[in-house]
Simulated assay, not measured.
Amino acid sequence: MAYQKPTCECGEELIYWTQKGYTEESKILKSGKIAKRPYHVYGNEMLVWDRLKCNRCYGEYHIEHDSSGRVIRGEKWDS
């Protein structure tokens, strides 16, 4: 059977949405304020959120993969 792109319950084609995190380290100044420029910025592989999202009704779904590794729609995401 041919692959079909995942769709929302409303019928709209879903998009892949991801949010990747990073960490900043900044000094605290003598004034008690946080320095505007961080002295260390690095990515954190553990801070990644992704899901399938509908641009029509804003429904969100977990990402699953079929036996060929292709993206399919999982359960509805509970916000």
Rank of each mutant, 00 (worst) to 15 (best):
C10F: 10
C57D: 07
N55Q: 14
G43I: 02
I28N: 02
E24D: 15
L14V: 06
N55K: 15
E12P: 00
Q4R: 08
W17G: 02
E9H: 04
L47Q: 09
I72T: 13
Y42N: 03
V71T: 12
Y61N: 01
D78A: 12
K20G: 06
I72C: 09
G59Y: 03
L52I: 06
P38L: 05
K76W: 07
T18I: 08
K36I: 04
I15G: 09
K53L: 13
R37W: 10
L52H: 01
I63N: 06
Y22R: 15
E24P: 05
N44Y: 05
G74N: 08
Q4I: 05
Y61M: 01
S68A: 10
R37D: 14
Y61R: 04
D78Q: 13
E12Q: 12
R70N: 11
K33G: 13
H65T: 12
E45V: 03
E24H: 07
H40P: 00
S26H: 09
I72M: 12
N44Q: 11
K33R: 13
Y39R: 11
G32Q: 02
D78Y: 04
E24I: 03
N44L: 13
Q4E: 12
Y16S: 15
W49T: 14
Y42A: 02
K53W: 07
L14R: 03
A35F: 05
Y16F: 15
P38R: 09
S68D: 11
S68F: 06
W17S: 09
W77H: 15
W49K: 15
E12G: 01
P6Y: 02
S67K: 14
S26Y: 06
T18G: 04
Y39E: 09
W17F: 14
K76G: 05
I28Q: 03
Y3K: 10
Y42M: 02
M46H: 11
T18Q: 13
I72K: 14
T7H: 08
D66W: 06
K53T: 08
R51H: 07
C10S: 07
H40M: 12
I34Q: 09
R56S: 14
N44M: 08
I72G: 07
Y42I: 00
G32I: 01
G43P: 02
E25N: 10
K53M: 12
G59W: 01
C8N: 00
M1Y: 13
V48K: 15
G32A: 03
V41T: 14
C54N: 03
G32P: 00
L47I: 08
K36C: 03
A35G: 07
I28C: 04
P38E: 04
K27M: 12
G59C: 11
K76Q: 15
K76I: 13
E64M: 08
E13P: 00
T7G: 02
M1Q: 13
H62F: 14
I34R: 12
C54P: 01
E12V: 01
E24T: 12
R37L: 10
V41E: 11
H40A: 12
S79F: 09
D66P: 05
E60N: 06
S31T: 15
C8E: 00
Y61I: 02
C10V: 04
W17R: 11
I28H: 01
H62Y: 14
N55V: 10
C57Q: 04
S68M: 05
E24V: 06
E60Y: 00
D78W: 02
G11A: 02
I34G: 05
N44D: 15
E25T: 11
